[in-house]
Computed example of a mutant assay.
Amino acid sequence: MNDVEALSRIRIVLVNTQHPGNIGSTARAMLTMGLSELVLVSPQRFPHPQARMTAAHAIEVVEKARVVDSLSEALAGCAWVLASSARPRHLGDAPLTPWDAATRAVQTAASAPVALVFGCERTGLTNEELDLCHAVTQVPTNPGYSSLNLSQAVQVLSYELRKAALPEFRPVAAKQDHPWYAPPGVEDMERFYGHLERILMSTGFLDPANPRLLMRRLRQFFNRASPDRNELNILRGVLKSIEQPKGRRVPLPGDGGEA
């Protein structure tokens, strides 16, 4: 099983959820990151129309959600259980960072089911519920305002799970595969620099009798920018428009045609 498939073995467990809208929003947060197994422990209002409404196009996660009476039942068969808790605890190890927790969850889920547990909105998880979990994670929020909505917390941790499962994201648009976006050759850049120097001298911006380091600085600037072939052609076109202006008058703000 690869890391992406491991996401299918990670279940999200919500304990005693108060607001049905949070169940739907959680389903949406899950599905956007490739998670689909939702288990509800004694939800206060479910099924509920608001859960379906806030799920949007993730309604399938809501419809397939399992409802159980206890956290023990929700965790049955899991090899590793991670609790999400914002409150500091006096006992136990220090909480894992979300990214470290996600890495371990994905690694474990490659061979056995994993659960990520969230408590109810008002009080979070009880100490007894935490005793059923192997580790705790905590989102490093702003100390001055650390409140996260339940579905927001699920979204943050679901994102970390997906990031751990997909360490290298494929670009949305693989523009590097298009010939226009390939890097220009050395000869292309030298022709551009010659063109640029000629134009700057023609406009008087560059004094050939006292050039100082202008062209060297411009070379460094464009080398840092690393223009692709398409961008270099645009720059050459701009230079050509200065060298051979077409004479079109550019209307200024306030010129005719306005009342």
Score class of each variant (00 low, 15 high):
Pro88Lys: 07
His90Trp: 07
Gly34Glu: 00
Ala74Asn: 09
Val238Gln: 06
Pro211Met: 06
Thr203Trp: 08
Glu5Asn: 11
Ala112Arg: 12
Val106Pro: 06
Thr126Asp: 12
Arg87Tyr: 10
Glu187Asn: 09
Pro227Leu: 07
Cys120Lys: 15
Ala165Trp: 06
Leu75Trp: 02
Cys78Asp: 09
Leu116Ser: 02
Arg66Gly: 02
Arg11Met: 06
Phe46Gly: 03
Glu197Thr: 13
Arg66Ile: 01
Asp228Asn: 15
Glu60His: 10
Ala182His: 15
Ala112Gln: 14
Ser202Cys: 01
Gln155Asn: 13
Gly256Asn: 06
Leu218Ala: 10
Arg216Ala: 14
Pro208Asp: 09
Val238Trp: 12
Gly185Leu: 08
Tyr181Cys: 09
Pro167Glu: 03
Pro20Asp: 12
His134Trp: 02
Asn2Val: 07
Leu206Arg: 05
Val39Arg: 15
Leu200Val: 03
Thr126Glu: 15
Leu218Phe: 02
Phe169Cys: 05
Ser151Arg: 01
Gly185Asp: 10
Pro251Gly: 01
Leu91Asn: 07
Asp131Met: 12
Val4His: 07
Pro143Arg: 07
Ser25Met: 15
Val106Met: 04
Asn210His: 11
Leu196Ser: 00
Ala182Leu: 14
Leu157Gln: 13
Leu235Met: 15
Ser202Val: 06
Phe205Pro: 00
Arg45Tyr: 13
Leu31Glu: 09
Gly194Thr: 11
Leu200Ile: 04
Pro88Cys: 04
